[in-house]
Design a protein around this nucleic acid. Structure first.
Lengths: 221, 221
DNA sequence: GCGTGTGAAAATCTTCACAGCG
DNA sequence: CGCTGTGAAGATTTTCACACGC
């Protein structure tokens, strides 16, 4: 089975979700001038078990050397290829409230190869304003951005009540990948991928664990 | 087995991670004046299957009525109790860069019952500055905040290279729950819960799915 | 010899399908 | 009768443990 075939069919979702972590660890190793790494070391750097790391990598192909380990650069580029990072994924951020502005100023996107090519807002009073060196554009520009600039990822940073509208506009313009920061369930056609990041959800999960700790401590202090 | 006992032992992690979604849907229903809901309806509103919803709820106890459904208010408060939201979880945000300021201005925390009681930064030039109506405090205030104000959750919004230091300071002050926005693996004692939200990771996962779609389309257009 | 790659086993999570209760 | 709660089946994910190849 060719690498491309392996990539095409099922890499398990759980595995895909960990690949960015491996890539991050490999990049750090490369920056530190380390050329080769064992599964044990890389797993430690990524916070997983070595068995899981090897199983995950086995879905991509066989890029290690038995008795030695992995070539850092090589493995990094194989993972990047599996994730589809060899191509460009231009990003637009919709909603120029506090969060949208913070995201617009965030340098991490560019560092990991995601170009933010547009900032948008539905409010005519915000459109035309300059944010982080870019002019905010109206939602009606979406179709053009997709057609002429290859826009392919939308980030929703609107308030909750505008999120579904923003999403519908992105989908209508042809975007298939949405990163949503609004605490709502977005409804989309099934060929559109949505990932929602909700701060309150994260805090509530932490509250659960905090509570659990407190109880465990009371039982066995 | 009592409810408290059920809560104490294992609610599966996957189940815990969905409870906030149910709570959000229930709150929306309550706001819309709806008093009773079936598993089918609630599951739809939360984006899961009805079987999964019922299984998840069965871990909390038996709060539905056969042939009828669930009382919206009642179920919401049982879920809140299971998550530990009956108690207060005061939050501090560490790092007053772009993201920290956006989080400081975010209203969603308060809406879901998390009080932000302090903003901190390690940079003396930022300490003392006013952000969203609060004076930024130095890291050395952490111990006092934990002791006197019950601070229990730390949000790390620093740059990557300051994140582990910030985390160590939080842990040293006695905090057991950390929400991390820096793209690094934090190392903590095992009784500390960390959840990391990394925007680039999310985008990379979306890139994978986008690529997959593109391939699928090429194969079967 | 050493560390990868991988079948097989174990654990976890999701779906099915229906008994049971209001 | 209708919908919940739940054992059992099925799917997925993780861990184990060792054969294999440099």
């Amino acid at each position: 089975m060719s690498t491309a075939a392996a990539t095409r069919r099922g890499i398990p979702d759980a595995s895909v979700a960990r690949l960015p972590g491996y890539l991050r660890a490999l990049t750090a190793l490369a920056d530190a001038g380390i050329a080769s790494v064992s599964s044990e070391e890389l797993a430690g750097a990524a916070g997983v078990s070595s068995a899981m790391l090897r199983k995950d990598l086995s879905h991509l192909g066989s890029y290690g050397v038995r008795g030695v380990g992995y070539d850092v650069e090589r493995l990094a580029s194989e993972i990047a290829a599996a994730l589809g990072l060899t191509q460009d994924w231009p990003v637009a951020i919709v909603g120029m409230g506090n969060l949208g502005r913070a995201l617009a100023a965030y340098r991490g996107f560019a560092e990991r190869g995601f170009r933010v090519i547009a900032l948008l807002d539905r409010d005519p009073r915000v459109v035309g304003e300059e944010v982080s060196g870019r002019v905010v554009r109206p939602m009606t520009d979406l179709a053009t951005l997709v057609r002429d600039e290859g826009l392919s990822v939308g980030v929703i940073a609107t308030a909750s009540d505008g999120a579904q509208d923003a999403c519908d506009a992105l989908v209508a313009a042809g975007i298939r990948s949405v990163l949503n920061f609004a605490p709502v369930l977005l409804s989309v056609p099934e060929d559109v991928a949505v990932r929602t990041v909700d701060l309150s959800t994260e805090l509530q999960i932490l509250a659960f664990h905090g509570q659990r700790n407190a109880v465990a401590e009371a039982v066995a202090p």
